[in-house]
Design a protein around this nucleic acid. Structure first.
Ligand SMILES: NC(=O)c1ccc[n+]([C@@H]2O[C@H](COP(=O)([O-])OP(=O)(O)OC[C@H]3O[C@@H](n4cnc5c(N)ncnc54)[C@H](O)[C@@H]3O)[C@@H](O)[C@H]2O)c1
Ligand SMILES: NC(=O)c1ccc[n+]([C@@H]2O[C@H](COP(=O)([O-])OP(=O)(O)OC[C@H]3O[C@@H](n4cnc5c(N)ncnc54)[C@H](O)[C@@H]3O)[C@@H](O)[C@H]2O)c1
Lengths: 220, 220
DNA sequence: CAGAGCTTGTGCACAAAGTCACAAGGCCGG
DNA sequence: CCGGCCTTGTGACTTTGTGCACAAGCTCTG
């Protein structure tokens, strides 16, 4: 077994979770084989791309047949590193932080909520979802108890860098940032950013630049 | 004036809102000139990339000096189509829908909340943020009153396609989907997707595949 | 008004991602 | 057990994105 298979391209990595979600759905429907064609249709991408993506994980398909759903599911979980749970610590118990904490979809997909922490004394001790908001001073302890932990920043942008530093200091090695601000972390820490207003602006761009000739009539 | 300047590459479009955010910040600090170098630093990208990105908008810089913040801001808003507000309709008054409705950052950035609608009779009439949840039957009316409108899907994945169809039928031409499901829309409708669990899984991947030799010690 | 000092704008070479097309190879019916 | 059928896996090519390096051009100083 080749431990150091080819490096998986970033673009592929970004699609793997989508395939994973679809495979889980298929498995739930007791479908045990799927072709790249079908998978592509469900994921909204090109079939050749699906095959190439899956080929980075190894040679798991059967020519003339397709992919065994359960086996591919197992291999994909392996590749994504979601064979075990990754507890999540949410920093910031505001609108967004509370929505995230209440969201069942995370636990279901292997990301149980370890804790919600907040700097505001007034919020500490209040209930959110199944947990109680804890003070920032508990951060290191929480992280230590659950390692490896993913940190989620749901605070105002102005303190995002500060919070990121605190997360790193506490031992968190992966961070998802919802604040609209650039945060920098040591190289070995994984960092991703989600900016909802930015998404809206991108939509705005494509709407403004849409070919004015086409109308809403007529489906593709 | 060349109306049909070069087509702006997707990768550039995705970065423009980030530049816009930074320019707003700079303008707020009464800084009136910025170099590509500085802008790159603030955006966390390469300076040459910044210059190339900005050059798609036109020749707005001054050699030896940099870019005039206010002028660039104006041009960028023009390019992104955010010179006027884009009202947003949120479908689904659950955890996420309520958080979005309560979020001031959208109005601030030119995306005021037009309405929140929900199919659940029990939720219709309840207050969320500054508005009252309205029934799905009001959708067409709301859209007509505010056009152009961006639709936000914050319902369970199982009904995402249904909701998208309703949005399109009501006259919405841009959709942001938070549900973990593939939705398809006519070609001329802009669609973007945000899947938070997917982001966590990508983080999980990079953590699992991180070079085990590096540790948390030592900043870049 | 000439020359030094910056910073832009872009040609170019390279890297990454996406697509096509087809040979390789497994499955099944006769 | 052979040949037709189907789907994978991948080499070759196209398209898109990135980054370097430098000429062009503006400003300011003496
Ligand atoms: N609410 C949304 O739907 C939404 C959407 C997009 C982006 N965001 C972004 O998410 C972030 C949070 O948004 P929100 O609406 O929940 O804001 P919020 O103001 O409701 O909540 C922020 C929370 O962070 C806490 N906080 C402040 N400083 C802190 C610190 N130093 N350490 C720990 N906690 C601290 C506050 O006490 C508060 O509870 C913001 O950056 C916002 O731009 C929110
Ligand atoms: N809560 C989060 O933090 C979070 C995070 C990531 C993704 N999501 C996704 O966002 C979506 C919403 O999540 P949530 O936690 O708010 O769920 P939720 O169950 O709290 O809310 C869903 C809302 O949609 C409404 N709804 C159901 N069917 C509808 C229909 N046909 N038309 C209109 N409204 C309908 C429900 O009445 C409910 O109010 C889900 O797809 C979820 O996967 C949520």
């Amino acid at each position: 077994m080749d431990v150091h298979a080819r490096r998986i391209p970033d673009a592929t990595v970004a699609r793997l979770p989508e395939y994973l979600r679809i495979l889980v759905e298929l498995a739930g429907q007791r479908i045990d084989t799927v072709s790249s064609e079908r998978l592509a249709e469900l994921a909204g991408v090109n079939a050749a791309k699906v095959r190439k993506d899956l080929s980075y994980l190894g040679t798991y398909g059967t020519r003339g047949v397709g992919y065994d759903v359960d086996y591919l599911l197992f291999q994909m979980r392996q590749a994504l590193g979601v064979t075990q749970d990754w507890p999540v610590v949410v920093v910031g118990a505001g609108n967004l932080g509370r929505a995230l904490a209440n969201y069942a979809g995370f636990s279901d997909r292997g990301f149980p909520l370890a804790a919600v922490v907040d700097a505001d004394e007034a919020k500490v001790g209040t209930a959110v979802g199944d947990v109680t908001v804890r003070p920032m001073s508990d951060l290191a302890e929480v992280v230590k108890a659950h390692q490896p932990v993913i940190g989620v920043i749901a605070t105002p942008g102005a303190v995002a860098q500060l919070v990121a530093d605190q997360l790193v200091a506490a031992g968190v090695t992966a961070i998802l940032n919802f604040a609209p601000a650039l945060v920098s972390v040591p190289q070995n820490i994984s960092l991703r950013k989600v900016d909802l207003a930015l998404e809206l602006q991108i939509l705005s761009f494509y709407q403004s630049h849409r070919d004015p000739g086409t109308t809403t009539r007529g489906w593709p």
